[in-house]
């Protein structure tokens, strides 16, 4: 399935946060969206999954759903959004319980996603017992359990420390290598954007406009072998972003 953004503009009260955003995702592609703080990138993601409605423009879907997809547009949140009163298993079960699945089918799905994210031994742990990295793994397992067509990832690694972030980035790369999922991945971290994005959408400061879309042709799982090229991409993006980030930093907060 593909998601098409057509001339999206959005405002909160009088503040214009997004302006004239048009692009489309492709099957099996990770698009990272990067921009200075307050550029509306998280808003764009909320529009993408129907948690908010754009003031003008449309988000359209096209193409076939993956087989057995229960929730085509599935989010992974920065703050994990796990229910503290449910175990790891219960948290995944939560999003399956509203669908017509037998207990055995549900258990099969849960066991499958737990093993894909190597969480098997934590199935009965409470969220409070888990580290940040493990919590986000549970959230990823939960997202996988509904077989999404496009994953909407809202700064999924921003709440984690640098080491955990590196480990989880590797996990995401190997997950993608095994099954080419499509994702919109919002981040303010250049390294994540360059490491995980097939295409990188660079937004300007508020109101967010597309400044440039940078394609990286090196396959995601081989990027470690091209440190020189990756550094060049990184520098190119930093050139694009630096002035915007500087200007955004000096802006007064509205309201």
């Amino acid at each position: 399935m593909r998601l098409h953004f057509e001339k999206i503009s959005h405002q909160y009260d009088d503040v214009e946060v997004l302006s004239d955003i048009s692009f489309a995702t492709s099957e099996g592609e990770i698009i990272t969206i990067i921009g200075p703080s307050g550029c509306g990138k998280s808003t764009l993601l909320r529009l993408a999954g129907g948690l908010e409605i754009a003031r003008s423009g449309k988000v359209l879907q096209s193409g076939k759903l993956p087989q057995g997809s229960l929730n085509p547009l599935t989010y992974i949140f920065q703050d994990f959004a796990l229910l503290p009163w449910r175990t790891v298993r219960g948290n995944i079960s939560l999003v399956l319980e509203d669908h017509r699945l037998s207990k055995t089918q549900r258990d099969e799905i849960i066991d499958d996603v737990l093993s894909r994210t190597s969480l098997g031994e934590f199935a009965n742990a409470w969220p409070r017992q888990l580290s940040g990295g493990m919590k986000q793994r549970v959230a990823i397992a939960r997202a996988l359990s509904v077989t999404p067509a496009v994953m909407l990832m809202d700064e999924p690694l921003s709440a984690l420390d640098a080491q955990t972030r590196a480990i989880l980035m590797d996990d995401l790369v190997s997950l993608w290598t095994r099954e080419k999922f499509s994702a919109l991945y919002v981040t303010h971290n250049l390294d994540e954007a360059v490491r995980l994005g097939h295409r990188i959408v660079v937004l300007s400061r508020r109101p967010g406009r597309i400044r440039e879309i940078v394609s990286i042709d090196i396959s995601i799982d081989e990027r470690d072998n091209y440190p020189l090229e990756m550094t060049q991409y990184r520098n190119q993006l930093w050139e694009l972003m630096r002035d915007e980030a500087l200007a955004a930093d000096r802006e007064l907060v509205h309201g």
């Binding site: 999954g49 948690l51 229960l70 929730n71 547009l73 599935t74 989010y75 949140f77 703050d79 959004a81 229910l83 009163w85 939560l94 999003v95 319980e97 509203d98 939960r142 509904v146």
Partner: peptide, 23 residues
């Protein structure tokens, strides 16, 4: 954010009340 999560997974209103809001 927990309620938003429930909505984003397409949970029904009654499920959100029963499994997220009341606990």
């Amino acid at each position: 954010s927990l309620i938003r999560m429930g909505q984003s997974f397409g949970m029904s209103w009654i499920s959100i009340v029963r499994k997220i809001i009341i606990p």
